[in-house]
Computed example of a mutant assay.
Amino acid sequence: MRQQMVLGSFIFGQSRGFAYSSLVRKSGGGWVSLEIFTSKPKSSQTGQGLQGLTISGKSMRAIAMTRLDELRALQALRVPLPLVDGIGRNWGLWRIDSVSESQSYVIDDGTAMVNDWVIELTEFINA
């Protein structure tokens, strides 16, 4: 079974009807600017910042609603989760900061035919 990524026990991929179409990875260099009254700001190094991931996609029908509920259940555990990509690379531990969705084409029983969703993750380092 092919998969894009696994977060804890949650699998992103076509095989589960919940593949992502975009992944944005952000890492800061730890630089801040300190304002100086009489000159240009001074650059200062505060240490490497935590990485962030924004994973987004579009999924269809009730399966998308079920998968989003699974992600929210993982989020409710309030524990860091291992993240492993489809080629087996371990990305370390990550926390789920937010799960958001936008439902459209909702039919009469409340099922959304289209769900646009975004998952925000932040690297977890506690050493």
Rank of each mutant, 00 (worst) to 15 (best):
T38N: 07
S33T: 14
S44R: 15
R72D: 01
T46Y: 15
W91M: 10
S104F: 09
Y105S: 15
V99W: 02
V114S: 10
V99P: 07
G8V: 00
E70N: 08
G29Q: 09
T54F: 03
F10P: 02
D97M: 14
G8H: 01
S39W: 02
S22L: 11
G92F: 06
Q75D: 00
A62Y: 07
A112R: 05
P82E: 13
T111P: 12
Q4H: 06
R2S: 10
T111N: 08
T38E: 03
G49S: 08
E120W: 03
E120Q: 10
T54K: 10
G57D: 05
L81A: 08
M1V: 02
G86V: 03
V79Q: 10
S33W: 07
S21I: 07
K58G: 05
Q75V: 01
S33H: 10
R25N: 01
E120K: 09
Q45H: 13
V118S: 14
E101M: 11
A127W: 06
I87N: 13
G57F: 03
G57C: 03
Q45S: 11
T66H: 15
A127H: 05
S33C: 11
S21T: 14
M5I: 08
V106K: 10
A19P: 14
T54R: 11
D109L: 08
L83G: 07
K26P: 04
L68F: 05
V118R: 13
S15G: 04
Q45P: 14
V24D: 00
V99G: 04
T66R: 15
W91L: 13
L81S: 05
V114I: 15
F18V: 07
S44P: 14
F37W: 00
A64D: 06
A76E: 06
R95I: 12
R95N: 14
D108S: 14
R67W: 07
I63T: 14
R89S: 14
K58N: 11
G28W: 01
E101G: 12
S15I: 05
I63P: 01
Q51K: 11
G17A: 08
A76D: 09
V24Y: 00
D69M: 10
L7F: 00
R72H: 00
E35T: 09
V99Y: 02
G52P: 04
F12C: 01
F37V: 09
V6Q: 00
D116N: 13
S43A: 09
F12K: 02
G110W: 03
G28A: 08
E35P: 11
T122C: 13
F37G: 07
D109W: 04
I11K: 01
I107M: 12
R95M: 15
V118D: 11
S44W: 13
E101H: 11
Q48K: 14
Q103T: 08
G52K: 06
G92Y: 01
I63M: 13
I36A: 09
S102A: 08
Q14N: 13
R72C: 02
W117N: 03
S22K: 15
S98G: 12
D116L: 13
S22F: 05
V84E: 02
S56M: 02
R25D: 04
S44Q: 15
D116A: 13
L34S: 07
I107F: 12
I63H: 06
E70V: 04
A76R: 12
G88H: 03
V32D: 14
M113N: 15
I125N: 12
L83Q: 06
